[in-house]
Design a protein around this nucleic acid. Structure first.
Length: 438
RNA sequence: GGAGAGAUGGCCGAGUGGUCGAAGGCGCUCCCCUGCUAAGGGAGUAUAGGCUCAAAAAGCUUAUCGAGGGUUCGAAUCCCUCUCUCUCCGCCA
């Protein structure tokens, strides 16, 4: 959410900035509502002041045993007018709020301008893609060839965009998550957290998924999807990312200055409806309704958020470096950034079967955008509450990391070498060999 | 699931219709006092808005006592709904 003051005083800048990311701010509707709001709010508050002072007088008079009928008469007609004014004001403010909640964040000055992903800018590249002297397979063929990856059964259990892993592959998946958690907690100073996978609507509003992206979420209702008479507010939503529960830890809080920065990591499943992505990445593990992710969140002093963003990306990169997986870091352009982000780096890992780099992490500084929605504050140097800055990034998407391992570490005989750093998590195993159902 | 109790400022806690944004205490800030420390005295100490203003300062004003609704000229206080916490019972991984 943007600052309403900024919209009132500097609307031109705001609309220009938003236009960079392809968002047309409804200037006229906003200005009309604002003018109306100002008028009605003043009226309402005047009426309230009248009522309050009359009521006070009645109180005084009564305590002295005086007659109050004269003052009562004075206020008699106030009620209806006041009620009407209050209702009107409420209605206007809801409309303003609706506009505000759907406006994306302003891009930081350093964000390259562009319309879509073709406008993203490569910042750096790490590692050299391995050259293969045999015909490579994609991760699906590798996994199925090993007998450890089974989409057919997953489809029977749930449907499309679900997966089933077995044996060494399931273990490798777990090993990756453990390895990531251990690295971030032991080497990067994150506090490990275990968080709810079902969250309420306030949390989703706080991080920006609601109200605009409802169709991307799965929701659940106690007692079944059609629980009679159940209000939508009583429903839960499955987290699309651990960013939601972790970041909302500080919602409605005032964090002491000396507690900053807060750095949390969590390994959670993520659930996405993938509405609107029909036909994209239908094969394999790349785009699933359910996937695991190790998420990093920073809650920081506003002066430090850009420094924190660089650190955050570095922490995610570290995982790929340890796994010796080639990647590149992209600065997303204005047109490709997510709703809440002021600046985003994507990390893209090399997938030999696709002969390209694919997103495996997205690290964003949301500045005060989420904090304002969440009323997440800290007590600043002057002892005054001020909005925090929030950042989040994948460190990394576990399923996609598994894909990268399967493809980059595959061998001619269909086996997969297990990266060094994962072997301690695999009971010393050094490769996934063609399974006879272990 | 059943029965009961509760939710008040940074914290504790008083307050059952009127001068209450809220006693008192703790904490914190500033000042005074005191060889140092400790103790003591005084003052201050919520948040988010709106309006006036070029702006700041300042002033005026509104809202907020878990959330939402209602009664009333007036609600922390009365009524309704919800959320959460605690105690006991039941069930359960």
């Amino acid at each position: 959410m943007l600052e309403i003051q900024q919209l009132r005083t500097d609307l031109d800048t705001v609309t220009r900035q938003l236009a960079k990311r392809g968002y047309a701010f409804p200037v006229e509707a906003f200005n009309a509502l604002e003018a109306e709001r100002k008028k009605v709010q003043t009226e309402t508050q005047e009426l309230q002041a009248q009522r309050n002072s009359a009521s006070k007088k009645i109180g005084h008079a009564k305590s002295k045993g005086e007659d109050v009928s004269a003052i009562m008469a004075e206020v008699a007609n106030l009620g209806d007018a006041l009620k009407q004014a209050e209702d009107h004001l409420e209605q206007i403010q809801q409309q303003l709020q609706k506009i505000l909640l759907e406006v994306p964040n302003l891009p930081h000055d350093s964000v390259p301008e562009g319309k879509d992903e073709t406008g993203n800018v490569q910042i750096r590249r790490w590692g050299e893609p391995r050259s293969f002297d045999f015909a490579i397979q994609d991760h699906v063929s590798v996994g199925e060839g090993l007998g450890l990856l089974d989409f057919e059964t997953a489809a029977k259990l749930s449907g499309a965009r679900f997966s089933l892993m077995k044996g060494g592959l399931a273990r490798l998946h777990r090993a990756l998550a453990q390895f990531m958690l251990d690295t971030h907690t032991q080497e990067h100073g994150y506090t490990e957290t275990y968080v709810p996978y079902l969250v309420n609507r306030d949390s989703l509003r706080g991080t920006g998924q609601l109200p605009k992206f409802e169709e991307d979420l799965f929701s659940v209702h106690a007692g079944g999807a059609n629980a009679p008479g159940e209000a939508p507010a009583a429903s839960f939503h499955l987290i699309p990312t651990a960013e939601v529960p972790i970041t909302n830890m500080v919602r409605d809080d005032i964090v002491p200055l000396q507690a900053l920065p807060l750095k949390f990591v969590a390994h959670t499943p993520c659930f996405r409806s993938e509405a609107g992505s029909y036909g994209r990445d239908t094969r394999g593990l790349i785009r699933q309704h359910q996937f695991d992710k190790v998420e990093l969140v920073h809650i920081v002093h506003p002066d430090q958020s850009y420094e924190a963003l660089e650190q955050l990306v570095g922490h995610a990169e570290k995982i790929l470096q340890k796994l010796a997986l080639p990647y590149r870091v992209m600065a997303l352009c204005t047109g490709d950034m997510g709703f809440s982000a002021a600046k985003t780096y994507d990390i893209e890992v090399w997938l030999p079967a696709q002969n390209t780099y694919r997103e495996i992490s997205s690290c964003s500084n949301c500045e005060a955008f989420q904090a304002r929605r969440m009323q997440a504050r800290f007590r600043n140097e002057n002892g005054k509450p001020a909005l925090l800055h929030t950042l989040n990034g994948s460190g990394l998407a576990v399923g996609r990391t598994l894909v990268a391992v399967l493809e980059n570490y595959q061998n001619a005989d269909g086996s997969v070498t297990i990266p060094e750093v994962l072997r301690p998590y695999m009971n010393g195993l050094d490769q996934l060999a063609s399974s006879r159902g272990q």
